[in-house]
């Protein structure tokens, strides 16, 4: 369904912009209605998700198990609100289903479950699992000489988990050019700033030192995201790490770069103000 090659770049960027706005609005409504969720991280990731699903990845939502599909692994599974909204927008299930977010017996569990929903490659929620699973997918593709790509989105606090760095070695060792890691570099984790907790900077040098090709982008700039993510992977000879500089709560003034919105949920006034700003 979606393939960047068929759509002129400007049209793609326009579509990505409108989808990312929709993802923000819809996920925030879900969080408001459920009175649960992780809206700050939903908002930092919305542009990345929209770019992947509406400009970069090759997939057919009617064939979610197609062996040739590009894979996306939502490692920061706590941001299920934005992820589910993106999956619905991409056609994996009816938008109406989003209303059941976190309701009893809902398929839309607080963290994504592949046994409930198409488009979810692996169950996430515990941080530091997505990159190793995505690496396994990419190795399978490499072994089969398949041309699909594997994308994985992690948080930045999440990179404090050692599993990522073990995997960084494996992926570089195997020259997994079909693997792309996107780091949502919003500089905030659950309770504080990353640099006040366990310093990550200089993050680009770390990934380079581990043998990865690194690109730094403005994670809210759709054209930049589109260009680095859709650049041909063949011949790179290395896995790609895209450090997307973002803001937690991006798009709503009172949530912007504010750690209390990691898992804060809006009251009615806040919800209405946010929706008025998200236009």
């Amino acid at each position: 369904m979606s393939s960047s090659t068929k759509v002129p770049r400007n049209d793609a960027v326009t579509q990505i912009a409108s989808k990312s706005l929709w993802i923000r609005r819809r996920s925030f409504q879900m969080v408001y209605e459920a009175q649960q969720g992780h809206p700050g991280g939903d908002f930092s990731a919305a542009d990345i998700l929209a770019t992947l699903y509406f400009g970069v990845m090759r997939f057919d939502p009617r064939k979610p198990n197609d062996p040739g599909r590009d894979r996306f692994v939502m490692s920061k599974g706590h941001c299920s609100g934005a992820f589910y909204a993106a999956l619905a927008a991409a056609g994996y299930f009816p938008e109406d289903e989003l209303k059941t977010y976190m309701e009893p017996l809902s398929k839309l569990n607080g963290h994504p479950n592949r046994n409930y929903l198409p488009g979810v490659e692996t169950n996430t929620g515990p941080l530091g699992h997505g990159l190793p699973v995505a690496t396994g997918i990419a190795i399978a593709g490499q072994l089969d000489n398949a041309d699909f790509r594997t994308f994985v989105l992690t948080g930045d606090g999440e990179l404090q988990e050692g599993s990522n760095w073990e995997c960084a070695l494996t992926a570089a060792h195997r020259k997994l050019e079909n693997l792309t890691l996107i780091v949502d570099r919003n500089r905030l984790q659950q309770g504080a700033r990353t640099e006040d907790t366990a310093t990550l900077d200089p993050l680009d040098e770390k990934w380079r030192a581990f043998g990865w090709h690194v690109e730094m982008v403005d994670g809210h700039d759709h054209a930049q995201l589109l260009d680095v993510l859709s650049a041909p992977a063949k011949g790179r000879g290395k896995p790609l790490c895209v450090i997307a500089n973002t803001f937690k709560g991006k798009g709503v003034s009172f949530m912007h770069d504010n750690v209390s919105w990691h898992h804060g949920v809006p009251n009615k006034e806040q919800y209405e103000q946010a929706m008025a700003e998200l236009v």
């Binding site: 569990n109 963290h111 169950n123």
Partner: peptide
Amino acid sequence: AYGELGPTH
């Protein structure tokens, strides 16, 4: 206790 967050939590 984490209820809706599911079995991972």
